[in-house]
Amino acid sequence: MIKNKKAGVFAIGLVLGMIIFIGMSWHAFSTTNKNINAGVIKTTASINIKNMGDRLSFYINESSKLAASQAFYEIVKDSAIDKDNPSCTVTGDTIIWNSNCMPEKIFLQNKFTDEYGKSFFDSLKAYSETNLTDITYTHTFENGEIKTKTDPKTFSSEEKGTFATYKLEYEFNPSITLILEEENINLDSFDFIYIKTNSDIRECRDEEAVDMVLCVKNKLEFDGWTVDVKKQGSYLIFELETEEYFFFEDKGMKFEKIILKFAMII
């Protein structure tokens, strides 16, 4: 009987020991797995979210370049003047440049910034991977650069693992600075074109040149533009074509040289 009691206690102890052993083993197994799983999911999710940041950065960079090209086209299309200026008149379909209707630096910078902002926002609206339109963007023109500033945007990603769901947050700042010279855009060139053309016409007039077109054409030379001059009545019609190609939208997307057209009185 005493022997049986001892055996009973031993058996119970054995069973309890086994339960504790199995329980601890299971706990160690699940905890380790959970940690490994968390590590893998965390690494995977952070790589995915970094890649998403890369894609977004690429998209914003490309959109910025495209917006700058479009803004430049909008300026050149209107002969680089303020179309609402009542002093501006036309000969045929060409704007006449004169002292009351000529390219003005501040106006061009403001118009460029506005057009850039519009085009840039259009591209943000189209981005499908995440919503980019809920952020306020401010664009400023400074020393030949267009700066887009905004507050950082937080993206979150949820990854489901075998043992738990992991949530990751990532902060991305879509601010960007575009150097316009690198995009072959120089807004100061319009001001210079007006001054140089005006003085060359005056010189040719003073020289009493027989062929005004040839005289002016021989004098004119602008970096980044090829010049063509024609005579139309008492005006010279100038067609300046960019040496570089630009992407812009005008009844569909185009990749062409942009033409600046204006007239000046002889």
Binding site: R55, E62, Y127, E249
Partner: peptide, 12 residues
């Protein structure tokens, strides 16, 4: 999935 481009008045 992939990188996206914007083409105005056309498509992404």
């Amino acid at each position: 999935a992939g990188s996206l481009f914007y083409i105005p008045s056309d498509e992404i």
